[in-house]
Amino acid sequence: MHIHTKFSEGESTVEEIASMAKKLGYSGVCLVYYPNKFKEKEKLEEEIKNVSKAYGVKIFLGFKARNVRELNFLVERRKEYDFLLVRGGNLNLNRKAVETPEVDILTHPELERFDSGFNHVMAKLARKNNVAIEFNFREVMITSKATRSRILKNLKTNAMVCKKYGAKMVITSGAISVWEMKDPLVLASFGTLLGMSIEEAKKAISSVPEEMIKMVRERRSKKWIRPGVKIV
C-alpha cells in the first residue's frame, strides 16, 4: 500500500517495486500517482498489467488527492481506478476525506502538523464512511530526535482514537524507493509500538487491505453505481 514510483515523486520503476515486493513476501502492492497523471492512466494500467503478470504480484493503481479540487476530480472518476487516497495534514482536507465514502485511505493526517490532525469526530465519520486511516512508517524512518518523537506521539494518539471509535487502520511503508519498502513483520511490529495489539497490527497490514481490494473489485464491476448503490 502507498508506494510512489518514478512517475510520481518516487525513485524506482514499477519492475523494481514488483521485484522487491516479491522478495519481501507481499502478494500485492498499491502504486500511488497524483491526479496530474490521470490522462496517462491507460498507459500506467498497461504497464502495471504487464509487470504484474511477469512478477506474479498484484499491483493496484491508486490516485492521491492533495487538495479539495483534486479530490472532487477523482471522486467524479471513481470507477476508473482502484484506490483513492487523500494526502492528510490539512484539517479541512482531512475532514472532507473522512466525509467522502468514495475515499479509501486518509494518508498521514498528522503530516507536517504539531497536533495529530485527527479527532474523535473524524474517527466516527471515518468509520461511517469506511475510510481507513494510514500509519506511515516512512515518516518515522526519515525523521529523528524531536520531530520523530512528535510524530510518534501523534501516531499513537490517532491509533488510540481509531481503536476507540472502530475506524479502520492501515500500516503502510509510504515508500518512494524500493529501499524504503519494509518487511510485513516490520510494519506489524511498528503498529505494536503505536499501541495496537499484535492482532490489530496484523489486521492493519493484511485483512483491512484485503477488504479494500474486495471493495475495489466490486466498485470496478459494471453493477456498481456509487457507495451503497448497485444494480442487482
Binding site: F137, V186, L187, S189, T192, L193, I198
Partner: peptide, 8 residues
Amino acid sequence: PKVIAGLG
C-alpha cells in the same frame, strides 16, 4: 516487536 521495528 520492538527489535524488529528498530531493524526496519
